[in-house]
Design a protein around this nucleic acid. Structure first.
Lengths: 150, 150
DNA sequence: ACCGGCTTGCAATATTATTGCACAAGACCG
DNA sequence: CGGTCTTGTGCAATAATATTGCAAGCCGGT
């Protein structure tokens, strides 16, 4: 990957709504050439997609929580089953299986505590094979970027 | 917020590269009206910005880790100082101060273990006021969305 | 130096976004 | 009820932007 591509990716990760001519000028290329590079990056899958990011508070989801989960019975089968459950929840925006003594980590986007409460009932109730879970509510967000460092 | 706006937001969170006419048709509005709604959402700050999402593996950052941090000395001052350090690291893509017995949580995007190693040296060394930290490496990503549920 | 593959810039063309304007839907008030 | 003010809408013209064909330039291999 060349220097120009990396520059383009960096810019597009910051703001993908800029015009092609604008980007072209910044990286020192002609608009057509610039566009072709971007298209190549897209079809190569380096650029996965372009999305709008909302302001969580203004979208009514100002509360965020991180939950670590330890399962009762471990193993591929049980892990998969739990993650399937978690993935179905709209409030779950990230769900990972992880190494270490905790089995899974969930990132939640919540409206309020009530939503958290009902979510817990659905995910961590008796039959869901969850031995214990630990919730950390986000107090301050110091950094939160979708940009992958280049 | 109306039904149409919420529909638009949902669509734009999935794919912000669609043409205005396309979106307009899907929500049953004329292109001009649709465009004005989107612009209103932007200037109201509901839509924060639009960005390109990269494929982490293809961008050379396939490794992901979640780190919980407990500080030696607690309190606003020390917390702020630690977060300032963390935020400066490009590999740190999310940094939160949280409630509970752990003080902060970091989300890392890494190239390899070497990078993790050197990062730890910088962030968790003696003088950084970190009492203990626990790292969970992401084994499987079951869900990872930037979309806020509406 | 020469060839082949790939990238570039330019200019023409096609798409798409944007704006002005007249009209329709409520909300509010006499 | 009728008036009127605010807000949103669709249409059509216009402006901005993306896209393509093509000739030329660059670069590595021989």
């Amino acid at each position: 990957m060349e220097r120009v591509d990396s520059k383009l990716l960096k810019l597009l990760q910051e703001d993908a709504s800029r015009t092609n001519a604008d980007l072209a000028a910044e990286v020192g290329l002609s608009p057509s050439s610039c566009l072709r590079r971007i298209r190549r990056l897209k079809s190569a899958g380096v650029i996965d997609r372009v999305v709008a990011l909302l302001n969580p508070a203004k979208a009514g989801r100002g509360m965020k929580a991180i939950v670590t989960v330890e399962l009762e019975r471990h193993g591929e089968q049980h892990m998969r089953r739990f993650l399937e459950l978690a993935v179905m929840e709209p409030a779950v925006i990230q769900a990972y299986s992880v190494s270490g003594s905790t089995d899974a980590v969930l990132m939640l986007r919540l409206m309020d505590m009530d939503e958290f409460d009902t979510l817990c009932e659905r995910l961590f109730r008796d039959r869901t094979n969850v031995a214990r879970y630990y919730t950390m509510f986000v107090i301050r967000t110091a950094k939160e970027t979708t940009a992958i460092p280049l």
